[in-house]
Amino acid sequence: MSNTYIRISIRFVLLILVQVLILSNVHFLGYLNPYVYLLFILTLPFETPKWVLLTTAFALGLSVDLFSNSLGIHAAASVFAAYFRPGVISLITSRKEYEPGVEPSIADLGFQWFITYTFIITFLHHFCLFLIEAFRFTGFFGTLGHSFVNALFTVLIIILAQYLFYRKKK
């Protein structure tokens, strides 16, 4: 059990470093930016209590904020995404039981399930993020479109990361 905690903590630190040092400097086509730190929220084990989910998401977002001079923006978006995670999971899953300790991943739940799950959460996160960043409702559809395209980009990177770093446990 403590093994799981250590692994999750390392992932937390690693994802923040990768995000602020590398990915935040990627400006694909000028304004697309992958926010792969979301992978941390996505892959927390299924039985994680809701309050843990929300507070870790808050801490994660705040850490990213501190290094990108945007205090609060990523925190708000992360908490928003984390709040909807349980709802999204039960919405797209038919059977309810998982073995304890299982984390959402392609290896355990299949490609189609994972991509649907990732895209919905990522889109919610991005939409919240860009809306707060713009801080006004003018250009609402521009924000919506930007969220959609950027979400596609982030999902692509997350899927690649899954294939690179996660192995099916035997």
Partner: peptide, 22 residues
């Protein structure tokens, strides 16, 4: 849980307004 969600969001927005005011 909804309360925690609201509290964290309010905190975040306060941060945004306080530290990112255009």
């Amino acid at each position: 849980m909804f309360f925690l969600f609201i509290i964290l969001e309010v905190f975040s927005i306060l941060f945004v307004v306080k530290y990112n005011g255009y």
